[in-house]
């Protein structure tokens, strides 16, 4: 599905990522772990084409997207859920979902109704402006907005950050439902229990380099390969 090799990236003169390589298979949930500033978000942004400069190869379903602009990457079926949610605050919940719709993509699995089924909280809020709903609801909305584009793979940046524990559980449930629909997920997390709950494999990032790769179980026992 996704194959990143020797990715170097950064903003302006500052290089953040050094030769990052990782893979995500079809239907897999892979976690990027690491502390603040390790380069997790930058990895996801670079895959999405949102950083200033990139070097290295990013193969997504057989296409090298390392030089593509974000909108073309999205059109290939790569969804991006940013850490700070970036809801359109003046648009209603329903309108936010509509912006995520991609008419050209034929595989129409997701519709507003299915999103509301996945996140029942959103259904009652559909005519409310995005700026007037809670943080947890915004987090659901931003995932729903990305799903509207029928992605094959979703890049989830810190989905559990800053939301209530009850909603975190709901989020984990939603992510499991998404994978059952065949959506692969690459998420960045600092919350290890949450990551363990949903991920198959993980990569450990430190100072912009991959320090560990393996299954979640390997991470606990200390095995796996650097």
């Amino acid at each position: 599905m996704l194959q990143v090799s020797d990715l170097n990236s950064g903003y302006g003169p500052a290089q953040i990522l050094f030769d990052v390589s990782l893979q995500v298979g079809a239907g897999e949930v892979v976690a990027l772990l690491g502390r603040n500033g390790a380069g997790k978000s930058t990895t996801l942004k670079s895959i999405m084409g949102l950083t200033d400069r990139r070097k290295g190869k990013i193969l997504f379903r057989g296409t090298d997207i390392s030089q593509y602009p974000p909108f073309e990457i999205a059109r290939l079926g790569l969804g991006y859920v940013p850490e700070d949610r970036r809801i359109f605050t003046d648009l209603t919940v329903a309108e936010n979902l509509e912006v995520g719709r991609q008419k050209r993509r034929s595989t129409t699995t997701w519709s507003p109704e299915r999103i509301y089924a996945l996140f029942p909280n959103l259904a009652d809020l559909r005519h409310k402006p995005g700026g007037q709903i809670s943080g947890g609801e915004q987090q659901m909305l931003t995932i729903g907005r990305t799903l509207m584009g029928n992605p094959h793979l979703v890049l989830l940046d810190e989905p559990s950050e800053g939301i209530a524990p009850k909603i975190v559980e709901q989020m984990a449930e939603a992510i499991r439902l998404m994978t059952r629909e065949g959506v692969a997920i690459l998420l960045s997390e600092q919350n290890l229990p949450f990551a363990r709950l949903i991920s198959d494999r993980c990569y450990l990032l430190e100072k912009g380099e991959i320090r560990h790769a393996g299954t979640m179980a390997d991470l606990e026992t200390g095995s796996g390969h650097p």
Binding site: M48, F71, P82, F88, T89, D90, L91, E95, N96
Partner: peptide, 24 residues
């Protein structure tokens, strides 16, 4: 209209609109 919707969305956050697959 959808075009208008995209304009309003882009007025708030044009890069996010791009990341959702809209050719800015």
């Amino acid at each position: 209209s959808r075009w208008g919707l995209l304009i309003r969305a882009a007025t708030e956050d044009r890069d996010m609109v791009g990341a959702l697959g809209v050719n800015q």
